[in-house]
Design a protein around this nucleic acid. Structure first.
Lengths: 391, 391
DNA sequence: GTTGATAACTCAAGCGGCTTGAGTTAATCG
DNA sequence: CGATTAACTCAAGCCGCTTGAGTTATCAAC
């Protein structure tokens, strides 16, 4: 969120160990059941080093032995996999009118979801609600209390003063607070803060349509329209944490140029439906109208195709992702309709022959994507080496 | 360039040392003259560790003592700075009709520039020309032979089969070759390969308008129009190395929607001038026409303002950079004119109050930016820790 | 001037964690 | 059933960072 977030940090024995733990854990997560020797080859460590780390991780319950793999020539490898109950991540999504919470187990499976209304969106009200949700989660998920890895937080963006009038969703009373430090103190946990689209992208990466992808972008239907960018396994958040504000980009729509958000977003469809006398406050409303092939909704979809396609073209050419995932608080059939109606651009670096993967896919995490993503931020942190990645 | 480039690598004593060397070197580069204790505080190492590494680096001639800093309370620190002659980076830019070469010293100052025409742009012809340029560079720059850190290579993108017809600039005979491995073998050096815009961004970061910036984007006038993206000090190249293909994105231009490149690029201005009976093959031609306020050129500039502004809005909102740098093979006055004529978008995350820095600035590396950038890739590599960066 | 405080730096011992090389175990192959 | 293969373990070795004591150089106070 700051312009110069990280200074390179030196390595020493202790930090190397911590780094290697994460490397091993990350490999087990990415590759599934793995043996020591295999992990050693993949990470450039010796089997002995991996062996020691495996013993440590297994002792802490983060991974568990899965029996030996039969089949090969020599001694069959003892396989290890993540232990789902070895750790939990708390995700909190703060909206102006409510707070959502979710808990993911170590493998990314949701084990708790809840929400509470927010009567006063000031610092005290939000904090109290967040603490209540955490307590509820800890009561519900047995064993989580001692094994909570941290809390991810999703707050309405954009962060800081961006001069965009009427972005509106800003919470009152947070201007001069660093939410990360604030909640780290209040919760007594490691905390990560991101905007909804970035967190949602992490959810898809950890447990959804982005599994196994190192570089992709996620078009997120939230209040507005956001873009979560994952590049080589890391979020691209921008210098000030506001990258991916795709809703504001100019796109063609019926001979005019409009901000994407006015043509493709939940607000946009609600307005279009309201103009036709339809109420559609919730995703369920939208799903119902779509099932009935409501003419106003279908007209909106038809009108959205051009600006949506333009946006996808822009995103493909600027990020060259493995794929573009589309999801969030929009009913699946409507997402599928948008995907089907998008015109894949000829002039796009993604228009390559022999693609193994579709250019556009629907996300797999549903309407709670951002909340799950908040927790996914913590899982990602757990599996991403602190001292990082080779060239 | 591949979809899964990096597997996380484990740390050990040797790799820690190499990492720490780069951390120290990078700190000296970023902060200028520095003392051991100061570096230790900044990197999280002990003075003793830094001291040992400093001794090693000084012994190799990469850094040099600069005398003691007076003024403070205790013992004044012995300052160290990069030794310009401590290392050199070779940059090679391969174009369909010529090969450019440059050498940067360790501080990023150019010490050699040259070009050779390319009669046959096949593998053999290119390789011969590249080797000849390297030899010329080594003859010219005394001391470079033993201190060549590597070679950066810029080749016409986009990489791989992107299905964009008529991108045309592709070199023949490279389809089934990995240029990095090929030139590493041919040159006997560490080699980095990037497209022109990415390399150019690195040039600005190492020795131009991007110094001190961790996150910025660079709009590059080359054959077409490219975007180099630097995020938290690292290039964002995309899953297949083709990120930043900004020329293909749809933008509004006089009531129509066109690919940006057809409105804002050297090809575009040449066409516009040709239609008015003007010849403008070189940047010098353009500079002359601009100095004379040629009506056809001024009309092109006027027409370019709208699509250019739209592109900047898109880029600002998607990357949230500290600033957008504009440069490459376009005369400085014309770049300045474009910057002046751009309409800063209201709806942009970059439109924040109290910005310390202009939203748009001209690059500082001139028409050779991409070639210098090729060399800058190597310098960056030298200063960027291999085992990387803390959260 | 002398003395004390401050801070950079060095020296040498200590220590954590990875590597090395030999040895053990468990499977397949002939 | 022995040879081969491959995973894994044990113990010693080694690399590089840290620790803590000691040295050097400057400033400030008396």
């Amino acid at each position: 969120m700051t312009a110069r977030p990280d200074t390179a940090v030196g390595a020493n024995a202790g930090r190397s160990r911590s780094h290697n733990r994460q490397v091993v854990l990350g490999r087990v997560r990415a590759a599934g059941r793995s043996g020591r020797a295999e992990i050693a080859r993949a990470t450039g460590l010796t089997t002995q080093a991996v062996s020691n780390i495996i013993a440590e991780l297994a002792g802490e319950g983060l991974i568990a032995p899965q029996g030996r793999r039969a089949g090969g020539r020599g001694m069959p490898a003892m396989q290890y996999a993540l232990n789902p109950e070895g750790g939990y991540a708390l995700g909190i999504e703060i909206r102006p009118d409510a707070v959502f919470a979710a808990v993911l187990d170590l493998t990314g499976q949701p084990v708790f979801e809840s929400r509470r209304p927010l009567d006063r969106p000031d610092r005290r009200g939000v904090t109290r609600t967040v603490l209540a949700l955490r307590d509820a989660a800890l009561r519900e998920v047995s064993g989580a209390r001692a094994r909570l890895l941290g809390a991810g937080l999703v707050m309405p963006g954009p962060f800081g003063d961006t001069g965009i009038a009427g972005s509106g969703s800003d919470l009152a009373g947070w201007a001069d607070t660093d939410p990360r430090a604030w909640f780290a103190e209040a919760l007594g946990l490691a905390v990560e803060v991101e905007n909804d689209a970035n967190a949602a992208a992490m959810a898809e990466r950890v447990a959804g349509a982005g599994q196994g992808l190192e570089s992709f972008v996620f078009v997120y239907f939230g209040q507005g329209l956001g873009l979560g960018i994952v590049h080589r396994g890391r979020l691209v958040a921008g210098a000030f944490g506001n990258a991916g504000e795709i809703g504001h980009i100019p796109v063609p729509a019926a001979g005019r140029t409009v901000p994407l958000e006015t043509a493709v977003s939940r607000l946009s469809v609600r307005r279009a439906l309201a103009a036709a006398g339809r109420e559609a406050d919730s995703a369920a409303d939208l799903a119902r109208l779509y099932a009935a092939r409501d003419p106003a909704l279908m007209a909106w979809l038809a009108a959205a195709a051009e600006p949506f396609s333009a946006a996808i073209t822009i995103v493909e050419n600027l990020f060259d992702p493995e794929t573009v995932i589309l999801g969030g608080a929009m009913p699946e059939p409507i997402v599928d309709h948008l995907i089907a109606s998008a015109v894949p651009a000829e002039r796009s670096v993604s228009n390559r022959a022999g693609r193994g993967r579709p250019r556009l896919v629907r996300g797999a995490c549903g309407p709670m994507t951002a909340t799950l993503g908040a927790a996914a931020l913590i899982l990602d942190r757990t599996f991403t080496p602190a001292i990082a990645v080779a060239r």
